[in-house]
């Protein structure tokens, strides 16, 4: 009796769990499917679940003059912003984790508070500064802004990872004659590789998906994928197939990264408050 009831209960849970999951995931699944239908199939009514797949939409996306440029822009912004953010963040996180002073806590919270600044509040001056320094619609300009906005997160995330490294191992390095530079490069960084990798990954994801600054600071020249996709929004551009193919290409790598590194992302996104 009890066993049967337990089994019944777990069946209900499984059913609810799966229905909710499929319902939430459905738009992404449908986008993926539509990307292989071609334009005619994409808008067929009733919508088709089974069809002969075609790469027609992908071909068209690849042939759009700016697709590759947009992809390279996205990569440039994401990688550039991430690398520079790490260059600033690693020493800062090291100092706060291993050489804390009276003001460390205050500094960390202040960094967090810079994240509270709503981007839209400073849209005007940033736009004007970018325009006056000729950084408007450049990969460099967007990467800089992305780096600034993500730096509090990268510092925090590295800080929480560094805090988990046993201090005696670094001290052993010092006893072995390592100076500060060697201590960081030969002992700390190899130990912290997983943490640094997930920090870099989170930064990449945030840059890749960033839309506000992408839409406002770039146009034809430096537009990343987030802005490129937006160009499909014009009413006359109702090309579901191409939209789906471009979207699938833009989303797939980040989905894969996100699935792989969920746990670390939680830490980063919550400033280490949830592990």
């Amino acid at each position: 009796m009890a066993g049967q009831r337990a089994r019944g209960k777990s069946l209900v849970i499984a059913a609810v769990g799966w229905v909710v999951a499929i319902w939430i995931f459905f738009p992404i699944f449908w986008m993926f499917l539509t990307s292989f239908k071609g334009e005619a199939g994409a808008i067929a009514t009733p919508p088709r679940l089974f069809f002969v797949p075609t790469l027609e939409s992908y071909h068209e996306v690849f042939q759009r003059a700016n697709y590759w440029r947009v992809t390279f822009n996205t990569l440039g912004v994401s990688i550039g912003a991430t690398v520079v953010a790490l260059l600033f963040s690693i020493p800062a996180a090291y100092a706060m984790a291993f050489l804390p002073g009276k003001r460390t806590r205050g500094t960390l919270l202040w960094m967090l508070s810079t994240r509270m600044l709503p981007p839209v509040g400073v849209l005007v001056p940033i736009y004007l500064i970018a325009r006056n320094t000729h950084l408007l619609d450049t990969v460099t300009g967007l990467a800089l802004v992305d780096m600034f906005t993500n730096m509090p997160i990268t510092v925090w995330m590295l800080y929480t990872f560094f805090r988990e490294i046993p201090v005696p191992i670094l001290e052993a390095g010092r006893m072995d004659g390592a100076n500060r530079w060697q201590e960081i490069t030969r002992v700390l960084l190899p130990l912290a590789t997983p943490g640094i990798a997930s920090t870099a990954l989170l930064s990449m994801i945030l840059c890749w998906n960033e839309a506000f600054w992408s839409l406002n600071l770039t146009s034809s020249n430096a537009a990343p994928l987030a802005a490129f996709i937006a160009s499909f929004s014009s009413p006359e551009g109702l090309f579901f197939g191409k939209l789906s193919a471009a979207s699938t290409l833009a989303v797939a790598p980040i989905l894969a990264f996100g699935w792989i590194s969920q746990k670390q992302l939680v830490r980063g996104l919550t400033f280490g408050a949830v592990k």
């Binding site: 046993p166 005696p168 191992i169 001290e171 052993a172 390095g173 006893m175 130990l191």
Partner: peptide, 10 residues
């Protein structure tokens, strides 16, 4: 020095 936790480089 030999540390309590050994502090070997993992």
């Amino acid at each position: 020095m030999v540390f309590q936790s050994y502090a070997l480089y993992p």
